[in-house]
Design a protein around this nucleic acid. Sequence first.
DNA 1: CAGACGTGGAA
DNA 2: TTTCCAAGTCT
Length: 291
Amino acid sequence: MSDNPYSTAVLAWYEANARDLPWREPGASPWSILVSEIMLQQTPVVRVLPAWRAWMERWPTPSDLAKDSPGEAVRMWDRLGYPRRALRLHACATVITEEHDGVVPDDHATLLALPGIGAYTAAAVASFAFGQRHAILDTNVRRVLARAETGIEYPPKTQTKSEVTLAESLLPPEPSVAARWGVAVMELGALVCTARSPKCVDCPIANQCAWTAAGRPAHSGPPRRGQTYAGTDRQVRGRLLAVLRDSAVPVPKEALDAVWDDRVQRERALDALVVDGLVDPLEDGRYALPS
DNA sequence: CAGACGTGGAA
DNA sequence: TTTCCAAGTCT
């Protein structure tokens, strides 16, 4: 087993072009890296940056976060989106505090068992925080491999087993090199091999890219996505939660009723928020973030 | 396993 | 203005 055909070029490119992100600094704690990974799920770096700084300043360790209420985590999450991540991150901090002596586990399987941590994040934390050898397969890497190896513009809509197998086959044997490779391919996908208007002229592996070799054929098949937002329950949930976030005290039902006209949809969204644990219905009829 | 789950900026 | 996309996870 030896390093893959791209590793040298990609690693060299990363050395010269990597962004200076705070969670990549040598002194970054595993917890700070874990927090960054949760925040970065489906969320652009530019929006995560200020949120991550504020979060780490307030709660430098898992036990710091666990001491506060889940509602405070949701409030601090502000408008980052997908607020269930805040709840899970708080739950994650609680489990780490109570079951792991406040220390972020370095074992992939143990990480995977934590709330809000799936296959990608477990691999990312094990690799980026602990220098272990794990295949990193996020949306960036999937796109790079689809192009460089498969010769198509975009990867399949849902992750396939063959993609995992491919990513594993490209993993350099040496753990420290593998960890570097993982973050480097991600960065390449984020900065050069982008979804729209890839900057192939700046790509260190353009001369080895199957998609480029094929003349960069356009994506064939059905449209890739169609996630409308206006009018959905998600939008209603967002508005309801914003009311609670912005209030220092529990709010009366009327305050929630005011943000959406359709009563049926509004009630459905509120019920769902309660089920999710993002909203706490008080006995006096008011509503609050979970305590 | 397809669909739900926020939000905002760029094209 | 509308569409697309951003370091996924959970059910």
